[in-house]
Computed example of a mutant assay.
Amino acid sequence: MTAAFIRFVPDDVDDLVAFLTGEDWPFHVGRPEAEAVRRRAADGHYDDADERTFWVVSEGERAGLIRLQDLADEGPVFDLRVRAAHRGRGLGGQAVRWLTGHLFTELPGITRIEGTTRQDNLAMRAVFRGAGFVKEAHYRRAWPGRDGRLYDSVAYAILRSDWETGEVTPVAWEDEPRP
């Protein structure tokens, strides 16, 4: 299954509302309210100088959504959502590889791309690793869940130099002086 990536435009707002409010997003706090999505879209939240949104289109359907954020920074971040009916088919990996190439090609000033997920989102963690991202942080009890629990959060990143060479620069975890 091959995906296409199509930039969000303001005329897509009804589809965006339906997408975000019509699905269960198990690793997000909950579904946003329709009016909140409309308000944020009207304010340019999904497409402005610092943020861009793309549809992940598969088999003629809007199967996912990518939000690229902090585009003015040297290390932008992203949010990826894939509809339940399309999960487990490789779209997440395609999307992360696409957004990595897109950002490093379109924004020559960025040095890295970052993403976070809940510790128990094993599928997304595998997507990160498969796309050349490296685990850089583990935040204990930092991600609020719908059930009121605090889950651990893990952060991954890819460096431009790693993307260009295909090499993975390991994190120097043991860099603290020993007493």
Rank of each mutant, 00 (worst) to 15 (best):
L122A: 15
I110F: 08
A123L: 02
V96Q: 11
I113V: 14
G90Y: 10
W98Y: 07
G115P: 03
G90M: 09
H102D: 15
R97M: 00
E114G: 14
E114T: 11
L103C: 13
T105W: 11
R118V: 06
R97T: 12
V96M: 06
V96K: 00
R118H: 04
I113S: 01
T105C: 09
T105Q: 09
L103R: 02
D120C: 07
I110L: 03
L99R: 04
T117V: 05
G109W: 14
G101C: 11
T111V: 08
G88I: 09
G92S: 10
Q94P: 10
R118C: 07
G115C: 11
R118I: 03
L99A: 06
Q119P: 00
H102P: 03
G88K: 05
Q94L: 12
I113R: 00
T111K: 06
G92N: 10
V96N: 04
W98P: 11
G109M: 09
D120F: 14
G90F: 05
H102Q: 11
D120H: 02
A95D: 02
E114D: 13
G109A: 13
A95Y: 07
L107N: 02
A123C: 07
V96S: 11
G92M: 08
D120W: 05
G88T: 10
T100E: 09
L103H: 08
A95E: 12
H102N: 14
L107A: 07
T117R: 03
Q94I: 04
G88S: 04
T100S: 01
R97W: 01
A123K: 01
G90T: 01
R112P: 00
F104N: 01
T105I: 14
A95R: 07
W98I: 03
A95H: 01
W98E: 04
L91A: 07
Q94Y: 01
R118N: 03
G90L: 04
L107I: 13
A123W: 06
Q94K: 05
T105E: 15
L107T: 06
V96E: 06
Q119W: 14
T116F: 05
T111W: 00
H102L: 03
L103G: 03
I110V: 11
G93H: 04
T100M: 04
H102E: 08
R89S: 13
G90S: 07
G88D: 00
